[in-house]
Simulated scan of single mutants.
Amino acid sequence: MSNNLELGDLKITLTTIEDEPISAKFELPDGSVVTRPFPETGELTMKLGLGLGLSHVQSGGGSSASAPTNTGLPVISGTPTVGQTLSTTNGTWDDGGAAISGYAYQWKAGGVDISGATASTYELTSDEVGDSITVTVTATNSAGSTPATSDAVGPVEDADPNFSSVVLLAGFNGVDGSTTFDDESNSNHTMTAAGNAQVDTAVVKFGTGSLLCDGTGDWINIADSDDWYLPGEFTMEAWVRPDASTVTTRAICGQWTNLNPNNSFYFYYVWSSSTAKSFRFLMSPDGTAASAVGLTQANTNIDQSVFHHVAVDRDASNVARLYVDGVMVASATITGGANVTGNLRVGDRGSGTAPWLGWIDELRITKGVARYASDGGFTPPTAAFPRQ
């Protein structure tokens, strides 16, 4: 854009080009031309040698740049548990016509700044237990700064005081279609996929993936171990989403070969009709099927479009309880347990006769601890299980 000013024989042209400083062109009466750039701020004075002076005060910038505009909020990743480290993306930004020179971070618990938490990562402490966590990312360029605050994660849960008793912990995270699985407990058991058992990143409860089994020979084998010998207190739990549509038995996990006396336990789901479904648990104190004691949920119309938290535990009085979504649905006295041989299978009971159809997420076995032990039930976990 140009603006002309004529003072007698003196012609002055002021020119503005987007993102460039203003310039002034002076056409003097003798025909000569002088061009001077205007500074971004301050005053430009030019004496013309004709007894005439010209001055212009330039305030602000000569550029059309503006402060950054947020186009996508920062995203927090990580498990909201004491001792775990959360990290954030910067979010996405429109730079406003001037390159973004940097980002600043401020983590918050319950909406209040956490002192000193000004990096792109933050390790949670006991001070944040019960609080939801957000982070504000501020982007800066030469024209200014703009903050953007993430969605909240949490509330923060305390570290697991019984983590040393966890003998299997599998979140089934990874790349979609992967057949590699990790036991994240201290036992670090090797998990070997069979059939088409794989990570599915499209259907998850927590984290980035779940175990998908198609009901035709898909499961994970884990070698025999004393960890699967459960003569006392224990807790077995997972988030599951069954996908059955015909009369069938589908096992979440088990060490049950159907060969006496080599049967220990299995945790399973029975589809009897579209409105009659149930979760169940069976355990043998001596390895024979005949002596097995079962826990059975009354048939109900279980919603197969969502994940359900299912758990079984046995307390110090040998009372075993079965829970679905935090509600105790069955109990019985089960004494002792069988120390058998054979793989523990995830996605089958151990004999290949009850392959899982659907998804399994956050499978955990705790040996020596009854985590819930309550006829009144409990509130199901609201985040992935702690990893420490």
Results as ranks from 00 to 15, higher is better:
149 T>W: 12
187 S>P: 02
159 A>F: 03
162 N>L: 04
136 T>K: 09
164 S>T: 11
183 D>L: 06
192 T>G: 04
158 D>N: 15
146 T>G: 13
140 T>M: 08
142 S>L: 06
141 N>G: 10
186 N>T: 13
180 T>G: 14
190 T>P: 06
144 G>M: 05
166 V>F: 05
147 P>I: 09
164 S>H: 13
161 P>G: 09
153 V>C: 04
188 N>S: 15
144 G>K: 10
149 T>E: 13
172 F>C: 06
193 A>G: 11
199 V>R: 00
191 M>L: 15
192 T>A: 14
151 D>A: 13
198 Q>I: 03
138 T>Q: 04
204 V>M: 09
174 G>A: 07
161 P>M: 09
180 T>S: 15
139 A>R: 07
193 A>T: 07
185 S>G: 06
173 N>I: 03
204 V>K: 10
157 E>W: 12
190 T>G: 13
165 S>P: 00
154 G>Y: 03
204 V>Y: 01
204 V>C: 11
150 S>Y: 05
194 A>S: 14
153 V>H: 08
159 A>P: 12
173 N>S: 11
203 V>L: 01
137 V>Y: 05
191 M>Q: 09
198 Q>F: 02
183 D>R: 02
168 L>V: 13
163 F>V: 09
195 G>C: 08
171 G>I: 02
167 V>F: 01
146 T>F: 00
201 T>D: 10
191 M>I: 15
151 D>V: 14
202 A>G: 12
198 Q>K: 15
154 G>N: 07
196 N>P: 00
140 T>H: 05
178 S>G: 11
170 A>W: 03
170 A>C: 14
162 N>K: 10
149 T>G: 03
141 N>Y: 03
150 S>H: 06
182 D>T: 09
165 S>I: 01
180 T>F: 00
136 T>P: 11
155 P>S: 15
170 A>T: 14
165 S>T: 04
201 T>R: 03
154 G>R: 01
193 A>R: 03
171 G>R: 06
190 T>W: 14
168 L>D: 00
200 D>S: 12
181 F>T: 04
152 A>C: 06
204 V>I: 12
169 L>V: 12
185 S>P: 10
136 T>C: 04
150 S>A: 11
140 T>I: 01
150 S>G: 13
171 G>P: 07
149 T>K: 09
150 S>I: 09
174 G>M: 04
185 S>Q: 07
152 A>I: 12
144 G>T: 11
173 N>C: 03
168 L>H: 02
167 V>D: 00
198 Q>E: 14
197 A>K: 08
148 A>C: 05
136 T>R: 05
136 T>E: 13
150 S>C: 11
166 V>G: 06
145 S>P: 13
203 V>E: 08
157 E>L: 14
191 M>G: 01
185 S>I: 12
194 A>F: 15
181 F>I: 08
140 T>V: 08
194 A>L: 11
202 A>R: 13
192 T>H: 11
191 M>A: 04
140 T>G: 06
174 G>H: 09
192 T>P: 01
182 D>C: 01
197 A>C: 07
